[in-house]
């Protein structure tokens, strides 16, 4: 089902009426404005001095642009280190998960083994475990392993999430079994089949999985907040939230930080848009 999205569908023959078209474009225009307005207001705040924020009536578009907030966040706070940490951890989790999830998905989709149905059931049920509820035992576990305040603390726990297995499995299930059979007759082992035949065929699925995993890590907040106390090991979300902890909140600084933090993910979005927008996770749970 997911793979089908990458093919173009023929144009629909049902013609909407004019009033339906007007309503639809109206809805989309309003949705776009509502989606973007907060970003523009944060942008306008970020080029103002914080004290001028409290003047009334406000100047929506400041006459002189003030870059101090950006200078301050970039050079007086470890903002670039937070950005590096976020990207490094998200990338590490994504790459490791891609490999281990694809391997497990292949076993569940195409191999026969004792206890397969039971294992599939347990993994599927575990998708429903709310990971936020596990912060206390995970905190003790990571502490006892001596990994608090390390990248390992951020990388290891997310690898346990079984959702990704089912995303990739739905792609592998849709491949014909004969692919494997004929390769086996040619003397190819299971690893050869997996790496040389299966993986190249499910590339779109792997990209969707990778983006989903990356986004989940990039937006993660609660676990890094629990596992990392060291300011220089922190990720973007927690780092920026710590700016609010001061007695007098520097709103200009926060607006600049929030806006800058959107830059890496926006760039990624521009390059990989069609994979981001392939929203059909539902297919993962059909099988």
């Amino acid at each position: 089902m997911i793979a089908g999205l990458f093919r173009r569908r023929p144009a629909r023959s049902l013609r909407p009426t004019v009033s339906m078209l007007v309503m639809s474009y109206g809805v989309l225009a309003i949705a776009c404005i509502v989606s973007l307005v907060p970003f523009f207001y944060v942008l306008s705040t970020s080029v103002k001095q914080t004290r001028s924020l409290f003047s009334y009536p406000p100047d929506w578009i400041p006459e002189t642009l003030f870059w101090g907030n950006y200078q301050k966040i970039l050079f007086e706070h470890p903002f670039l280190i937070w950005t590096f940490n976020t990207l490094f951890v998200a990338l590490a989790v994504t790459l490791i998960k891609l490999l281990i999830d694809a391997m497990a998905a292949y076993a569940l989709a195409k191999l026969n083994f004792t206890g397969k149905a039971a294992l599939t059931g347990v993994l599927l049920m575990s998708v429903a475990i709310p990971v936020a509820a596990l912060i206390i035992p995970l905190f003790f576990l990571i502490r006892d392993l001596g990994l608090l305040n390390s990248y390992w603390a951020l990388i290891l726990p997310p690898l346990a999430n079984p959702l990704g297995i089912f995303m990739i499995r739905s792609f592998i299930v849709s491949l014909p079994d004969d692919l494997g059979h004929s390769a086996r007759l040619d003397g190819e082992g299971e690893f050869g089949i997996f790496f040389k035949i299966i993986l190249p065929l499910i590339k779109p699925g792997l990209v969707v999985h990778a983006i989903f995993t990356f986004m989940l890590q990039y937006t993660n907040f609660l676990w890094p907040l629990v596992a990392i106390q060291d300011e220089r090991k922190q990720v973007l979300t927690v780092g920026i939230s710590s700016l609010k902890a001061n007695f007098v909140v520097d709103w200009g600084l926060i607006s600049a930080a929030a806006l800058l933090s959107a830059v890496p993910i926006t760039l990624l979005f521009i390059f990989l848009q069609r994979f981001f927008l392939a929203q059909n996770l539902a297919g993962a749970f059909k099988g």
């Binding site: 989309l28 989606s35 973007l36 986004m215 920026i240 959107a262 993910i265 979005f269």
Partner: peptide, 14 residues
Amino acid sequence: KAVIYFPTLQPVLI
């Protein structure tokens, strides 16, 4: 699609 998806890209915290 791209514009309406844009807020979804941001972490909830941001």
